[in-house]
């Protein structure tokens, strides 16, 4: 991944999520289900596959997760907006990496990403969206650890 360095505001995203974590996770009543299944998906990714997994997971969040959650509390809206717009910025940056041919997906990485999508689609759509939003700390920690050199503000 370090061949595909992008600057990102990871700490502000983490700070935004920290501010809404309690409220968002409290709306998730399925404590015994996880969508990211981080130990089977994210934590098993080799560094060369991080770029592609990041791109796919961010696209998944932008296309499905944020879209399928309606939020009435302005404070939570602002927190989620920060993360959604930051994900867009990162994904646009990763698109340039893809065009430079160093963000390709190997088969086992694609199957790990598909496990996430399957977990999501096994739940009712609103419950799946709020659970995925509640797991943003897991995703942001994983991104932070994998983009160490540039992931600073």
């Amino acid at each position: 991944l370090r061949r595909c360095l992008i600057s990102m505001d990871i700490h502000h995203m983490e700070k935004s999520f920290q501010g809404i974590k309690t409220a968002v996770q409290a709306k998730d009543s399925f404590q015994n289900i996880t969508i990211l299944s981080a130990s089977e998906t994210l934590y098993n990714i080799t560094s060369s596959d991080v770029c592609c997994m990041t791109k796919d997971v961010l696209q998944f969040y932008v296309d499905k997760v944020f879209r399928n959650h309606e939020e009435s509390d302005p404070r939570i809206q602002r927190g989620l907006s920060t993360i959604a717009n930051s994900f867009l910025h990162i994904r646009n940056a990763l698109e340039q990496c893809r065009s430079q041919k160093n963000c390709y997906c190997r088969k086992e990485t694609t199957s790990k990403f598909q496990l996430i999508v399957r977990n999501y689609e096994q739940m009712e759509v609103k419950a799946a969206a709020i659970k995925s939003l509640g797991e943003l700390d897991i995703l942001l920690s994983w991104i932070s650890r994998n983009y160490q050199p540039k992931a600073t503000t």
């Binding site: 309690t22 996770q25 920690s141």
Partner: peptide, 8 residues
């Protein structure tokens, strides 16, 4: 408790 994330 709330969900506890030791790493964070």
């Amino acid at each position: 408790t709330e969900r506890f994330n030791p790493w964070l």
